[in-house]
């Protein structure tokens, strides 16, 4: 028989262990992406071209080069400049940076959609730029773009197997190791695929829940 149930059950706990690393990398990477994305988006709005232009260039550069190359760069090239990162850290930073640039575009769409009158009312009330952003603009800019951000969450999650390229012991790497020691690939790879499917479905459901909540608040 092609599929060996006993082998599948034997490796399940090992893969479950590795899935924790995958989830950790996803969550940390996405939090980083959300923060960096907002920073990029706000800096791109800066009046001074000395800030806006370099940030726009950086964002375009990161968006237009493959994530895998960025992972390699952080892990293998940065040590040459005296910055040594362990594989997991390098992977998380690369994921956060790469998806941060996508999130920046999403935030920008949200920020652009806040009516001009909201800015003018903030000025008329003499709010500082900080309070204008924190209390007025961002609370209105983000809820409409939560679905788009959620898509990137799932997308980032599905790209974590790239971290196996720098030997982060996440799901894919663990599956490859299992396969190369027992010469059976069908069970580990299938199980990894199923895990990703399951997690993606759960994540999508969570995002829809958040969306519904935000819509309720928005409809008040």
């Amino acid at each position: 028989m092609l599929w060996d149930w006993s082998y599948a059950f034997e490796i399940l706990p090992i893969l479950a262990q590795a899935s924790l690393v995958t989830i950790q990398a996803t969550l940390l990477g996405f939090v980083l992406a959300l923060v960096l994305g907002l920073v990029f988006a706000l800096l791109r709005m800066a009046k001074s071209p000395w800030i806006a232009l370099p940030v726009a260039t950086l964002v375009e550069f990161i968006r237009s080069t493959p994530l895998l190359i960025q992972i390699f760069f952080l892990y293998f090239v940065f040590p040459e400049f005296g910055v040594s990162l362990d594989a997991f850290t390098a992977g998380v930073i690369a994921l956060g940076l790469h998806y941060g640039t996508y999130c920046a575009e999403v935030y920008r769409a949200g920020l652009d959609n806040v009516p001009r009158g909201q800015w003018e009312a903030s000025t008329a009330l003499n709010l500082s730029p900080f309070h204008t952003f924190r209390d007025i603009i961002i609370p209105q800019a983000i809820p409409p773009v939560v679905p788009a951000l959620g898509n990137y969450f799932v997308a980032l999650f599905k790209e974590t197997p790239l971290l196996s390229a720098i030997a982060v012991l996440e799901l894919m790497q663990q599956a490859k190791i299992l396969g190369s020691t027992t010469f059976r690939y069908i069970e580990p790879i299938t199980l990894v695929g199923l895990f990703f499917l399951l997690f993606s479905l759960v994540a999508s459901a969570l995002i829809r829940m958040v969306e519904r909540r935000l819509n309720r608040i928005g409809a008040r």
């Binding site: 009516p115 009158g117 909201q118 003018e120 009312a121 008329a124 003499n126 209390d135 007025i136 609370p139 209105q140 608040i217 928005g218």
Partner: peptide, 15 residues
Amino acid sequence: GKIGMVFQHFNLFPH
């Protein structure tokens, strides 16, 4: 701070 303004389209904070 010495000046206040009311707008044609209110511009209340909707949230």
